[in-house]
Computed example of a mutant assay.
Amino acid sequence: MTIRAGLLGLGKIARDQHLPAIEKTAGIELVAVASRNAQGEGVNNYPDLDAMLAGEGDLDAVILCQPPQVRYAAARQALLAGKHVFLEKPPGATVSEVDALVTLAKAQGVTLYASWHSRYAAAVAQAKAWIAERAVRSIDIQWREDVRHWHPGQPWIWEPGGFGVFDPGINALSILTEIVPEPVTLLSAELDVPENKQAPIGAALRMATASGAAIDAVFDWRQTGPQTWDIAVETEQGSLLLSEGGNMLRLDGEVQMKAPDEEYPAMYRRFVDLVAGGAIDVDLAPLRLVADAFLCGRHCPTATFED
């Protein structure tokens, strides 16, 4: 069976990642787009989800790429219509609303997939296997990028529910919670919030594994020039460095793997398999850590930031 899919929210991430990935993936076909301000090529176009569901009677799945603040209502509507749902990360603005979607998907007997694209970076699986055989001493995460480059003209990221710097930072947390074989808890957080914004532009997190290994993470949206997406792991039997967002792996300083970014095609292959098996895949561990940071983090006012 080929999944007939409709995509809601044709913005930058959808054009850059979702459309090419769907084109590459056997078993799924994009047949419709719903977007207020954009048109998809070679598919049926609608102004909103209501119109798309009404106009596409044989639609199998809905892919949600709009901002997290409005994703819950759309996901709920699609699930109630009996559609499988693919959620761009983060899966929602709150933990409780995603929990509610899982309950609804189970009741409807359809697939719900909370995608974490960084977990599908080329070297993540190998890093996970290497760490599983060693005792972790410490982990250092440096996730620094330029918000003006990655989110031009997107004011929603600075509003409540928009996550601010945790929009990219949650990618690091998704890798962390994938490669570490025990629970991770947040100990403290400092959030740098510009005077003219509602969400942080920088964050420093102190975390720990269940066995007590220290984890420090710095997320920053003010870095220009080369971008930094690194996770360094020290163990009793050597060191590991994941860089380039998880697509390069070094062990004790020696490059073991470097591969191009194929994260989104891998996620769509996973979605096709989930639908075929009637399964649900929703891991909330990265979102819970972000929620904890907002819950107990110390807010540190910082300079006004102009997009």
Rank of each mutant, 00 (worst) to 15 (best):
E56K: 00
G57V: 12
G57K: 15
D58Q: 15
D58P: 12
L59R: 11
D60A: 07
V62F: 07
Q66V: 14
Q66R: 14
A75P: 03
R76T: 06
A78T: 02
L79M: 06
G82N: 06
G82I: 00
K83G: 07
H84C: 04
H84S: 06
V85M: 03
F86A: 10
E88S: 09
G92Y: 11
G92F: 09
T94A: 04
T94G: 04
S96T: 13
A100I: 00
G109M: 09
Y113T: 00
Y113N: 03
S115D: 11
S115V: 01
H117Q: 14
S118C: 13
A121E: 04
A122I: 02
A123R: 10
V124K: 03
A127T: 04
A129L: 08
I131D: 02
A135I: 09
A135W: 01
R137Y: 11
D140R: 15
I141A: 10
Q142R: 15
W150V: 06
H151Y: 15
Q154R: 14
W158S: 13
P160H: 05
G164K: 05
G164Y: 10
F166G: 01
D167A: 15
S174Q: 05
I175C: 03
L176Q: 05
P181I: 01
P181Q: 01
E182A: 03
T185R: 15
L186S: 06
L191N: 04
K197A: 13
